[in-house]
Nucleic acid binder design. Structure first.
Lengths: 194, 194
DNA sequence: ATCTTCTAATTGAACGTTCATTCGGTTACA
DNA sequence: TGTAACCGAATGAACGTTCAATTAGAAGAT
């Protein structure tokens, strides 16, 4: 159906991207293997050359997307800068990734609230743990944040950014640099050590 | 399969509750009509006496659950009290509802990030709009909050509470009164007019 | 009280469709 | 010449939905 850029770098990636696009469009339900194959310009059987089953396809797609998210979030990080600067950079990067990758945002949200996340908690992105979680841990250990559990911190931050990105996408408006800063300040003022 | 309390008050409610329980357990996928029927102690055909299709069943379940949420959140509200007190009461109530109704929490999260929410945005709880949104609007109009869009405010608040409730449920720990206050303070410090 | 009649509620086997997966055969290429 | 990639029709299971038949219960008549 669609010949995509990714075809060059292999049908495996084409399948992943088609799955992402179809899940965004129709949800987990409306993404049958036959449609994924057609959308990726591939035969149904070919998918099974790269993935054991639909379940592992989605599992691997999750890690794939989260890897890209981790790289986008940590782009331009500079350990020389102040912690607050680094933190703000992370947040702003994350917001932009969501806005520029609506498919990924929608997929991640669906995945997180599906039984996949509960049934395969060990299946996650190593890159994300290394690049993103590490910075949070540092902030916690060095007392930049309130004295709360990090597993509470992370969803709070993510929730606000996802809300903002979803808002911009659904309302067809574009946040200014100042607007985005305001959002990040909501997070920062909430979680920083008062 | 299970004869439940709700059978007394009608098979319609039994079907709704079974759907909720099965979606919590197995997700949207793992909740076929045949299983819902068996779990509710009802024949498959009977479901179609009360609901046009599986789609409308889920749509009506959403409104049903959100109605209960709205009532729980606004319990004990007293317009005589200070705005901050009322707001804190709402947040604490919301947290407790999530913790005590894991099925509902999980279902709402799944529903929100599914195509249902995008395709039927008009299908929502009137009770929720009247009891909950109203208090937010009041806070915005009377400048208790930062000058941000209310549609940004709501998901931020919800995100943090959902994160906290999910955390307590998954980690099998119980937040103390002080812990919950700390969570609500994260929200309040973030969004209040500085 | 008993019988009659009508409607709403309920049943579960049957139907038709959709879907994930398989597999025997073909192509690309090393 | 051998191996990996690829194809797509065929398969069988699972699922949402239908429907002809049965039961429950209410309303009305005797």
């Amino acid at each position: 159906m669609n010949v995509q850029l990714e075809d060059i770098s292999g049908k495996r990636v084409a399948v992943l991207n088609s799955t992402l696009a179809l899940i965004k469009e129709h949800g987990f339900h409306g993404a049958p293997m036959s449609l994924i194959a057609k959308h990726a310009g591939v035969a149904a059987g070919t998918i099974y050359h790269y993935f054991d089953s639909k379940e592992t396809l989605i599992l691997e797609l999750y890690v794939h997307v989260k890897d890209k998210l981790a790289l986008a979030i940590s782009a331009g990080d500079d350990p020389e800068k102040s912690y607050k600067d680094r933190f703000f950079n992370f947040m702003i990067n994350q917001f932009h990734f969501y806005v520029e990758n609506e498919n990924s945002l929608f997929f991640l949200e669906q995945y997180m609230s599906s039984p996949f996340a509960k049934n395969f908690p060990e299946r996650d992105s190593q890159l994300f743990a290394d690049k993103v979680i590490t910075l949070f841990q540092y902030g916690i250990e060095n007392a930049h944040f309130r004295n709360i559990d990090s597993r509470l911190l992370a969803p709070t931050i993510k929730g606000t950014l996802v809300a903002a990105a979803t808002f911009q996408l659904s309302e067809q408006i574009v946040f200014s640099k100042e607007d985005i800063l305001e959002v990040v300040n909501i997070i920062w003022d909430g979680i920083k050590r008062q």
